[in-house]
Nucleic acid binder design. Structure first.
Length: 544
RNA sequence: GGCCCGUUGGUGAAGCGGUCUAACACAUAGCCCUCUCAAGGCUACAUACAAGGGUUCAAAUCCCUUACGGGUCACCA
């Protein structure tokens, strides 16, 4: 019996060779970097995944390369129904659109299939080859045996794992292995490592720099027993080689396994891609840092930002600020450029865990929303409300123009108002503008005397109000009104001699403001008066 | 526990041997502006380079030790 016989026994229907497959995946005709986002379909778009996808996308766009999406569905137990749709939706929503992908039957790109479970035959060709050349072998150890091994190793205080003298099935003769498989015994295929743990190798990570790592000596499982699908380690090596990925962006949790991957690339004579191991996104709780958790932290799920109504650009920008520390500076200097023009630098990636700051998001978001014009804000907020906020949706729907006028207060100007951080803020910011929701507890300030209040608003409406006044005229009239009623027309005079006046122009403005809105703090009064018009002003004054 | 990575102010961070009495941004506080708020401008945040040893004329920057934090040790990715 030879290794070839064994390989044929395990893969009787595989007739293609490694060379055959290689021909199907010729060198790409692009000069730029080829990156990929390769999530496992767990039904969840993690913020860390989005961080990586943005990085991949940026690198590809920067260099005129390719960014593709690959579905890593080799773990059938964990797979969720709509997982691919969830990922695609988020990617599309945030405009991180892959150049190549496979979705709902459509295959875009020549390097597919882009779904690992559809690539089974390809993996088998490579595994078969590995068995033939003696770099892979069947292992019959059961999970129980493996855990006994682990306990034994722990007891001996040696490294755990299937390596060296502990890799029992490595010593089984070809003939025995052949017979056991023939008898229907369950097995996995393991990679036969030639590494020596005592040997250190230098590995250069694009983000983390030079790292001194021990060679791999573990005989990792490369093909599982039940469905004959590859494990991540093997699929990564084959796919990223065949699809010609030049830069692999993945989480830091993969760092300890790079030596495995490097050895496998080497076993095939493939060039390994470059790697960027991204820091984990962390969260602070009770003063302690920990990995952001999808169970405890709603913001770990990209859906959260949609639900809260943060503009998509704000979310991407906020992630960009932790992807590259100099991003904010670039953005300040290039306020209107698309983010793809920002030149990504792997060395500027944080080497320790990045803490995602919701306050920062709010700030970025306020700026972005403040720069929208009223039509854009209307579109965005209405679309959002239709999905997430019935009350707001109704308000908008009832009178679109009125809504646009409200959100246009202090908008579309050089220094626009910045009070909306997310669409879910809007309702509470504007509800009192609607008569049916206007049920105020008047927040009177200095002037609380009803007679005086009535006097002020009556004098104002009867003697001063004119809808056509421009802002200066309007304010001058308020000053006049103040003066006539015994209040200081300007603050400086008042501050000099407060005793000479009943109060000042601010008190008068406050009375009008509170009468109209119930609130002591509102956007610009002049704008509100204009928005309301004489009828609404009268009816609100009459309410007092 | 073994191996690997990291540690600059409340937060994200710049810095890569001298220009560091340590940038910038967010947060917080105060002042200014002002009809209120949101902004905007200015200022502050008291001893921010984890600790201790080296190397060097010179260290946040290089080396070692310790402490702390993180990652990883699956037929999960």
């Amino acid at each position: 019996m030879t290794t070839k016989d064994l390989a044929n026994l395990i893969f009787p229907n595989i007739t293609k060779t490694v060379e055959d497959i290689e021909k199907m995946y010729p060198k790409r005709e692009v000069d730029g970097e080829v990156t990929r986002f390769a999530p496992s379909p767990t039904g969840f778009m993690h913020i860390g995944g989005c961080y990586q996808a943005i990085t991949d996308y940026l690198i590809a766009k920067n260099t005129n390369g390719i960014f593709y999406l690959r579905n890593e569905d080799t773990d059938k137990a964990r797979e969720k129904e709509d997982a691919v749709k969830i990922i695609m939706d988020i990617l599309n929503y945030y405009n991180i659109v892959p150049d190549e992908y496979e979705y709902e039957g459509d295959v875009v790109g020549k390097y597919g299939p882009y779904i690992q479970s559809e690539r089974k035959e390809i993996y088998h060709v490579f595994i078969k080859h590995l068995i033939e050349i003696g770099r892979a072998y069947p292992c019959f150890c059961t999970p129980d045996e493996l855990s006994v091994l682990r306990e034994k190793q722990e007891g001996m205080k040696v490294r755990t794992g299937y390596y060296g003298r502990f890799s029992k099935c490595r010593k089984i003769s070809i003939d025995d292995a052949y017979d056991r498989i023939k008898n229907g015994e369950k097995f996995v295929i393991r990679f036969k490592s030639k590494g020596d743990f005592e040997n250190k190798i230098w590995y250069e990570d694009l983000a983390k720099g030079r790292l001194h790592l021990s060679e791999n000596d573990i005989d990792d499982v490369i093909m599982k027993s039940d469905n004959m699908l590859p494990t991540y380690h093997f699929a990564h090596v084959i796919d990223d080689h065949l699809m010609h990925t030049t830069i692999v962006v993945r989480g830091e949790e993969w760092l300890p396994s790079v030596t495995k991957h490097l050895e496998m690339f080497n076993a095939f004579g493939f060039d390994a891609p470059k790697y960027i191991h991204t820091p984990l996104i962390q969260k602070k709780e009770d003063g302690k840092l920990r990995k952001i958790s999808k169970r405890k932290d709603p913001e770990a799920n990209m859906e959260y930002f949609k639900e809260m109504g943060y503009p998509k650009d704000a979310v991407v920008e906020s992630l960009l600020t932790i992807i590259n520390s100099n991003y904010e500076e670039w953005r300040d200097n290039n306020p209107d450029a698309p983010f793809t023009e920002f030149k990504f630098d792997a060395k500027k990636m944080s080497s320790s865990g990045a803490l995602y700051d919701l306050m920062k998001l709010e700030d970025i978001s306020k700026n972005i929303i403040s720069r929208m014009n009223k039509d854009e804000l209307y579109e965005e907020s209405y679309t959002w409300a239709c999905k997430y906020d019935e009350k707001l949706k109704e308000l908008i729907y009832k009178d679109v123009d009125y809504y646009k006028n409200i959100i246009n207060i202090e908008r579309e100007q050089a220094k626009p108002r910045k009070d909306i951080a997310k669409y879910s803020d809007i309702y509470n910011l504007i509800y009192y503008m609607y008569d049916e929701l206007f049920n105020p507890e008047y927040e009177w300030m200095k002037i609380t005397d009803t007679t005086e209040i009535k006097n002020i608003i009556n004098t104002y409406i009867n003697e001063y109000y004119d809808r056509d006044d421009d802002k200066d005229t309007w304010f001058n009239k308020i000053k006049e009104l103040a003066e006539n009623l015994g209040y200081a027309a300007n603050m400086k005079d008042y501050k000099k001699n407060p005793d000479n006046y009943k109060g000042n122009v601010a008190d008068i403005a406050t009375v009008i403001r509170v009468s109209l809105t119930g609130k002591k703090n509102t956007p610009d009064l002049y704008e509100i008066l204009k928005l309301f018009g004489i009828d609404r002003i009268r009816s609100r004054f009459n309410k007092i």
